[in-house]
C-alpha cells in the first residue's frame, strides 16, 4: 500500500464517520472488486458472495465511528469480509474438498523423497502457458478447505504480508506461514500431476 492510498483512506474514513453518502460511494468504488474477489474465493458462489459484500459495506458504514484506525482501512474491511463469509459457511454443509494430506510429499523412513521429483520449472517459462497454469492453480485452490484457501488468497493473491494476514484472520504468524506452506506444497504436487498428465496425454 502506498502512503498516498493511506492518506486517501483517512479522508474517506472521516467522511464515513459523518455518514456522508459520497464517502460510502468512493469506498464502494475503491474496494468492491477486491472485497467481491475475496468473498468469491471463500464462498465460491456468486449469490452468497453478493450478500457477503452487502454485509461488509453496511457493517463498515455502521461501525466507522468505533473503528480506531489501529490497522489500515482495507485490512479492517478484509477482516469484516472474512468474518461475514465464514459466518455464511458455518450454517452450510461443507462444500466438497479434497484432503490436503493426499498431496503432501511422501518420504522414506530415512527421510528421503519416496517419489520421483521432476523439474518442470523450465518447461513452463512460456507466457501463454503461465496464464493457463494460473487458471489451473485457481481451480486447484477451490478444492482446498477454507482454512487453507483464505490464507492463500490473502497472502498469494492479494499480496498481503504474513503479519497482515495473521491480523485479519486472528491467527499467529507461524500459523499463517504453516498453512501457506502446506497450501503451496499441495499446489506444487497437483501442478506436477497436471503437467505430467499433459506429457503422457490424457488417460
Amino acid at each position: 500500500m502506498t502512503t498516498e492510498r493511506v492518506v486517501d483512506d483517512n479522508v474517506l474514513l472521516e467522511g464515513l464517520r459523518r455518514g456522508a453518502p459520497e464517502a460510502v460511494e468512493s469506498l464502494f468504488d475503491r474496494y468492491h472488486n477486491r472485497i467481491f474477489g475475496l468473498a468469491m474465493s471463500i464462498l465460491k458462489n456468486e449469490s452468497d458472495a453478493e450478500e457477503a459484500v452487502q454485509d461488509v459495506f453496511l457493517t463498515v458504514v455502521r461501525k466507522a465511528n468505533t473503528f480506531k484506525g489501529n490497522s489500515a482501512l482495507y485490512s479492517w474491511m478484509y477482516r469484516i469480509c472474512v468474518n461475514a463469509c465464514l459466518m455464511r459457511l458455518r450454517g452450510k454443509r461443507r462444500s466438497e474438498t479434497v484432503s490436503i494430506e493426499e498431496f503432501m510429499p511422501v518420504f522414506t523412513e530415512e527421510g528421503m523423497h519416496a517419489s520421483l521429483i521432476d523439474d518442470w520449472s523450465k518447461e513452463v517459462e512460456r507466457k501463454a502457458l503461465e496464464k493457463e497454469l494460473g487458471q489451473v492453480i485457481q481451480r486447484f485452490t477451490e478444492d482446498l478447505s477454507e482454512k487453507y484457501r483464505v490464507v492463500f488468497v490473502l497472502s498469494d493473491v492479494e499480496g498481503l504480508s504474513n503479519e497482515e494476514t495473521a491480523h485479519i484472520l486472528g491467527l499467529t504468524v507461524p500459523a499463517v506461514k504453516s498453512r501457506l506452506h502446506r497450501a503451496r506444497l499441495y499446489l506444487r504436487e497437483r501442478l506436477s500431476g497436471y503437467l505430467q498428465e499433459g506429457k503422457t496425454g490424457p488417460q
Binding site: 467481491f36 475475496l38 503461465e130 496464464k131 494460473g134 487458471q135 492463500f152 498469494d156 493473491v157
Partner: peptide, 9 residues
C-alpha cells in the same frame, strides 16, 4: 505462477 491468479471479476 500463483501471481497469475486473478480474483473473480
Amino acid at each position: 505462477l500463483c501471481r497469475h491468479i486473478r480474483p473473480d471479476e
